[in-house]
Nucleic acid binder design. Structure first.
Length: 309
DNA sequence: ACTAAGTGATAAGGCGGAGT
DNA sequence: ACTCCGCCTTATCACTTAGT
């Protein structure tokens, strides 16, 4: 079945019948059996090898994500450029290229001590356990003792379960007691900690679980910062549509679905670029993609042409 | 297409506070 | 005194963005 082409709603100010009709129609199409289930949730997680939105580096076995608009990761793209300058061909490049491991922690499974919490780094520990291990190791070394991981691990217990990151558009779980994921915690710190949210750790009495409270100088300022924060610009195929208005959210899903069914040649859309568009839509609080003047600037001619057709 | 500058992600260490 | 934690800063490399 070929999908119908839909014109985008153009009036962002009026709650018109046309807009509600469009939303209902799109929601029905998205819920339908022919719609790609990968693109259905509000947090879309695209597999590495997905045909149009895949993000695997073109070098076989390389685990890094590809550069925006390029076929290889940052390292291999530079290497391929060097090969081209030297007049060598793609066969020689692929023969020479060594698969690389990502430096950043992505798709690392869950914490070995907190089974429901995603691992933060390559050591299979959540953000808090990872920080605790670093502290403990440094302390042991300062005192001239071996930082034996097994010794430390034997004393670890699951930490209190944390909810989702307080940034509404963020698809990650909170990694810190103040309620932010590690990425947003760092950004919060860099932006001067509005509201000055601080975790107070009550050390456990013998045999009792640890408890935590959060203190604020200005809780409203903290919540305001969370509401305005944008999602991370990730390169691992995660696209968060949270925070978008319903029609724009449905339009993005529909456009992604339609594009994935189109001709394959020249059709690669980097998910990181789509996330930038979504973030801009969220920032401008737009109703429909047609309201977004920045579509062309952000997405380039190829994508904006498809969106606005 | 290329490159320089900027940003993000991870790791490490210092300091002070607080429980044992 | 010992131990552990929160908070902060810094370093480094990976990755993104903007300009040409």
């Amino acid at each position: 079945m070929s999908a119908p082409a839909l014109a985008l709603a153009t009036d962002s100010t009026a709650g018109t019948r046309t807009t509600s009709d469009r939303l209902e129609l799109l929601q029905a199409l998205i819920a339908g059996p022919s719609f790609d289930p990968v693109l259905r949730p509000d947090v879309i997680r695209v597999p590495r090898d997905y045909p149009v939105y895949g993000w695997r580096c073109g070098v076989p076995g390389c685990e890094r994500s590809r550069d925006t608009w390029r076929d290889y990761c940052c390292g291999h793209a530079a290497q391929w450029s060097q090969f081209q300058r030297e007049g060598r061909d793609i066969v020689a490049f692929l023969k020479d290229a060594v698969p690389l491991k990502p430096r950043g922690g992505r798709h690392l499974g869950n914490c070995v001590f907190c089974p429901e919490v995603p691992a933060y780094s390559g050591n299979s520990l959540c953000f808090l356990h990872s920080a605790a291990l670093v502290k403990w190791s440094a302390f042991q070394r300062r005192n001239g003792r071996p930082d034996d991981y097994e010794l430390w691990a034997a004393r670890q217990e699951p930490l209190p379960r944390l909810d989702e990151c307080l940034v509404p558009s963020c698809p990650e779980g909170a990694g810190h007691y103040i309620g932010l994921c590690p990425y947003h915690l760092l950004r919060y710190t860099r932006e001067g900690r509005p509201g000055n949210a601080k975790a107070i750790h009550q050390r456990p009495r013998r045999g009792a679980p640890a408890t935590f409270t959060v203190n604020y100088v200005d809780q409203a300022a903290f919540r305001g910062w969370c509401a305005k924060a944008t999602p991370a610009g990730r390169t691992d195929g995660v696209l968060s549509l949270r925070g978008l208005r319903p029609l724009a959210r449905a339009e993005v899903k529909w456009v992604l679905h339609r594009h994935a069914q189109g001709p394959a040649e020249g059709a690669h859309w980097p998910i990181s670029v789509v996330q930038r568009l979504v973030t801009e839509c969220q920032r401008q609080e737009i109703n429909s993609l047609a309201d977004l003047g920045a579509v062309r600037r952000i997405m380039g001619g190829a994508i904006s042409g498809s969106l606005l057709r």
